[in-house]
């Protein structure tokens, strides 16, 4: 009884406190501070027509596309963005042979140590090396980029909401601001050194437009339009972020199929075990 009485009192006290001291001012304040209108960024990313080859439960990699995406990363993105959790040897998963990977790795310079005097030098990459960062450290990266830090791209498609489509959209988001929206948000401006991009949460991004038509020449002859390159780099970065994606989905079908089969057998077994009890119930019910 004492506990119940105490409970009731404590309950009234707590809810009273909430209502009187926290809730009421909240109710009065509610809807009072009008948020200033900001130029709204596009929360909904766009997707390429027909989607990506790896979309959906039955998706697969489009190796030609991944190789094109790698070319875009190598020739454009890698100037500023690292890919630090990917090793050159991983490129074999894109369909390159071991010899091609070795040759590819050798084209990159990675930090090394001079075997003679121990000084820090650049040496050609080996398949076991990770992709090198374009900058020695964060300070240098910021110094070269107007105090903005180009993020590592390994996990970018997982580290952003709807990341694959985000990359695809952002690459093509350097449009002119909508004059109507600009009129609605008088404070809107793009500061010098930043670029308008409606898919960036902040509207103004430090990265200049990159994928200008024809900036790379695809070795497979595909026309390097902005849309094409955006699609290819988004695909490549999806692979970089989650190399096990396709294997995971394929394993998943097998595992779920097996589990459902086992569940069905288990259910039949359960029904058999309980048959007598159910029958008893039925019989007794009829007798009554």
């Amino acid at each position: 009884m004492t506990i119940r009485l105490g409970g009731i009192l404590a309950g009234i006290a707590i809810t009273g406190v909430l209502i009187l001291w926290s809730l009421m001012p909240g109710l009065f304040n509610y809807a009072s501070p009008e948020k200033p209108d900001y130029y709204a960024f596009q929360e909904e990313n766009i997707a390429p027509e027909g989607g990506f080859s790896f979309d959906g439960a039955f998706g697969t990699w489009d190796y030609a596309q991944l190789q094109r995406g790698y070319q875009v990363y190598k020739e454009v993105c890698s100037a500023c963005h690292s890919l630090k959790f990917v090793a050159f040897r991983n490129l074999q998963e894109l369909g390159y042979t071991e010899a091609e990977v070795r040759a590819e790795a050798a084209q990159w310079e990675v930090p090394g140590i001079d075997p003679k005097d121990g000084s820090m030098v650049k040496r050609p990459g080996l398949p076991t090396d990770m992709f090198p960062s374009p900058y020695a450290n964060e300070v240098e990266a910021r110094a070269f980029n107007n105090n903005a830090l180009p993020p590592d791209l390994t996990l970018i498609t997982k580290a952003r909401k709807d990341g694959v489509h985000y990359v695809y959209s952002l690459m093509q988001g350097y449009n002119e601001p909508d004059p109507e929206d600009v009129a609605k948000s008088p404070d809107f401006e793009t500061p010098p050194g930043l670029y308008f991009n409606e898919y960036f949460y902040n509207i103004n991004i430090a990265m200049p437009p990159q994928l200008l038509d024809g900036i790379v020449t695809y070795s497979d002859g595909t026309e390097a339009t902005e849309e094409q390159m955006a699609q290819d780099i988004a695909a490549f970065l999806t692979w970089a972020g989650e190399p096990s994606l396709i294997k995971r989905k394929q394993t998943g079908w097998f595992v779920i199929g097996f589990l459902l089969f086992a569940t069905l057998l288990g259910f039949m077994s359960y029904k058999t075990v309980w048959a007598s009890k159910k029958a008893e119930k039925k019989n007794k019910a009829e007798l009554i």
Binding site: A57, G252, V255, I256, L259, T263
Partner: peptide
């Protein structure tokens, strides 16, 4: 047992997809 199978199927759907 059979109910565990059902929940694990759901679990696998989340883990793999």
């Amino acid at each position: 047992g059979w109910f565990l199978g059902l929940v694990l199927s759901l679990f696998a759907a989340v883990v793999f997809f």
